[in-house]
Amino acid sequence: MLRIVNRVLLGVTGLVLLLLGGAVLAVGLGANPPSWWIHDSRHDVLLDDAERTRWHDAGWWWPTVIAVLAVLLLLALWWLTAVLRRHRLAEVLVDTGDGEGALLRGRALEGVLAGEAARLDGVSHAHTRLTGRRSAPEARVRLLLEPHADPGTALRNLTDDALTHARNSAGLASLPAEIRMKAVKHRAERVS
């Protein structure tokens, strides 16, 4: 969800800046602007003296400007922290059966899952990442398949072996997984 919001905000911001910059450039190069445009001709300035001092004596102007800039700053800081936030699960809560539980490092489970997935037939390389909550983790697995590998067989082996072993060893009721597969691309070589 956050990735979608991030992309939409970046796209809209980029589009607005591109349109404004292109319109200002077109007027600067001599195009005739429409009547509602902020510039009248190529020699017009962005803000003249009358426009800059228009609201200077109004008591509501500066508090409104400061409030709008503060809101924009808070939104920009929220966006920055959302983008920089860690998306990887640090630990997994393992049910030990005695009512206490134990914590398993998320990187350890990721490493074991990736190692077991990489040893499957037809898999060249595997990368895993755990997301979600520590009591209900989710796995994201990326597999790089050999050219001869059957994707259906590789998927079945991954779910039957590696994901089942990880789920059972961590004592999880379920371990949902998003699996992405890609085939190895070999460069053509000249045979003589």
Rank of each mutant, 00 (worst) to 15 (best):
R3P: 00
V5K: 06
V5W: 11
N6F: 15
N6A: 14
G11Q: 09
G11T: 10
T13A: 15
L15R: 04
V16R: 04
L17G: 08
L18V: 09
L20D: 13
A23Q: 12
A26N: 05
V27G: 07
V27P: 08
L29T: 07
L29W: 12
A31L: 12
A31H: 08
P33W: 11
P33G: 08
S35M: 07
I38H: 13
I38N: 01
H39D: 02
D40L: 07
D40H: 14
R42F: 06
H43A: 12
D44C: 08
V45W: 11
L47N: 09
D49G: 09
R54L: 13
R54E: 14
H56A: 14
D57F: 03
A58M: 04
G59W: 15
W62L: 15
T64W: 11
T64I: 05
T64L: 15
I66G: 00
L69T: 10
A70W: 09
A70C: 13
L72S: 09
L72R: 06
L77T: 07
L77P: 00
L80F: 12
A82P: 00
R85P: 00
L89D: 09
A90C: 00
E91F: 08
L93R: 15
V94I: 12
V94L: 12
T96K: 11
T96L: 13
G99S: 09
G101N: 09
L104A: 15
R107K: 10
L109Y: 02
V112L: 12
A117W: 09
A118F: 01
A118R: 15
G122R: 07
G122M: 04
H125K: 12
H125V: 07
H125A: 14
A126F: 03
H127D: 13
G132N: 06
G132M: 06
R133E: 14
R133W: 03
S135F: 01
P137R: 07
E138F: 00
A139G: 04
V141Q: 02
L144E: 15
P147H: 06
A149F: 08
D150F: 06
D150Q: 09
T153F: 01
A154Q: 01
L158H: 09
T159A: 02
T159H: 10
A162V: 03
R167F: 04
N168C: 01
S169A: 13
G171R: 05
A173M: 02
P176I: 05
A177S: 12
A177I: 03
E178Y: 00
I179F: 00
R180T: 13
R180P: 00
E189I: 11
